[in-house]
């Protein structure tokens, strides 16, 4: 029996490395896509004849709102604003983006291997595969990809692809190299339904924050381009900074809700395991700090003078704190949450 368990776990590790390799390819494809967008955006700019200009301006004008009563035919509905809330920055032509499509196909493929790796690890360990640092990373990155792919169904976020796959390769590869541990039985304090709920929801929140993080970075770049006309060319094919911001905000508030739940569920668990619901243990402190930072972000979005770039920085700082909490705090800070599985 131990032999069979061992092989299942090594299958899992094999799948992880395969997934990482495929994600790396996806990253390359997405990066090429961005580079080509830059190129085509520049070409377009060069070739911008008067005719193209006017057409583009007209389209943008129609999209940007204002009353339109052009079609006065019976029963015709005219739309005063673009129902897809994020018109492209300048260009009117929608490029075909072959490389982005390839990137997405590769990401889906990588995701399937990744899912396989996570499930086999869980089966091998006979418990949920998120009980030590290696497994947190395994499941956490799986959720990042899952949220990204799910979001793709609704809106074209492929310009985030290279950031997401790049981040995943780094986190998953790093975790497999540095944090991998063999399967050992759960420690008593972890034997709880709250392990299943609390940790999973925390990972889900992290995944949503990761996407918001990517969008906030692009938002900053985009707004710099809008005001100073500086920045890589692919930004021209991306939504306006306001649209990126509101998208980032949407991911963040969902993430924030899950994080709030994580906080409450963690307190309930702590009350069962340690006899107090809150004790400012290092991990609790950081969970709280992250929560307050994102509450700050939500406020900043609602505060005059803070909307836009300043709030974007808060989203970036918030996610930096999430990563810090997962890596540095788990490894080097002393506390009750000593479940990294590393010694």
């Amino acid at each position: 029996m131990p032999d069979a368990t061992l092989t299942l776990d090594s299958v899992s590790v094999l799948l992880v490395w395969t997934a990482i390799a495929i994600y790396a390819l996806a990253f390359v494809a997405y990066a090429i896509d961005l580079a080509r967008r830059s190129a085509s955006a520049i070409e377009e700019k060069d070739a911008a004849s008067g005719a193209v200009r006017t057409e583009a301006r007209e389209l943008v004008g129609a999209a940007a709102g204002g009353s339109t009563t052009r079609a006065r035919g019976a029963g015709a509905v005219t739309s005063g604003s673009d129902s897809v809330s994020w018109t492209q920055a300048d260009g009117a032509k929608k490029p075909r983006l072959v490389w982005a499509r390839l990137g997405t196909v590769l990401t889906v493929l990588g995701f399937l291997f990744h899912l396989g790796a996570t499930v086999t690890r869980g089966i091998a360990a006979e418990r949920v595969p998120w009980s030590n640092m290696y497994e947190f990373a395994l499941t956490g990155t799986l959720l990042i990809i899952a949220v990204y792919l799910a979001a793709l169904v609704r809106s074209d976020l492929r310009f985030l692809g290279s950031l997401i796959t790049g981040l995943t390769v780094l986190l998953l590869g790093g975790a497999t190299l540095a944090f991998y541990v063999e399967i050992v039985p759960l420690m008593d304090p972890l034997k709880s339904v709250w392990l299943v709920i609390h940790v999973f929801v925390a990972s889900l929140a992290t995944a949503l924050f990761a996407l918001a993080f990517g969008l906030s970075i692009l938002q900053l770049m985009q707004s710099r381009r809008e005001t100073k006309a500086k920045g890589p060319g692919f930004l021209r094919t991306l939504p306006r900074s306001e649209a990126l911001e509101s998208l980032a905000y949407r991911f963040t508030i969902i993430g924030f809700m899950f994080w709030t739940f994580t906080l409450i569920a963690g307190a309930i668990w702590a009350n069962d395991a340690w006899g107090r619901y809150w004790g400012f243990d290092t991990k609790e402190v950081w969970t709280f700090v992250i929560w307050v930072l994102y509450a700050g972000y939500i406020h900043a979005r609602a505060t005059r003078g803070w909307r836009g770039s300043r709030s974007a920085w808060l989203s970036i700082i918030g996610f930096a704190a999430v990563l810090f909490n997962f890596t540095i705090v788990n490894m080097f800070f002393k506390g009750l949450h000593a479940y990294s599985g590393l010694s």
């Binding site: 004790g279 400012f280 243990d281 290092t282 402190v285 950081w286 709280f288 700090v289 307050v292 930072l293 509450a295 700050g296 406020h299 900043a300 609602a302 505060t303 005059r304 003078g305 803070w306 808060l314 705090v329 800070f333 002393k334 506390g335 009750l336």
Partner: peptide, 26 residues
């Protein structure tokens, strides 16, 4: 709103040292 925001950010920052130095309570 601005004060609330600044205080929130201060709260986040002020909580950090408690994870760096050992705390009498914990």
């Amino acid at each position: 709103m601005r004060t609330a925001l600044v205080l929130l950010l201060l709260l986040a920052i002020a909580a950090v040292p408690g994870s760096i130095f050992p705390q009498r309570s914990a």
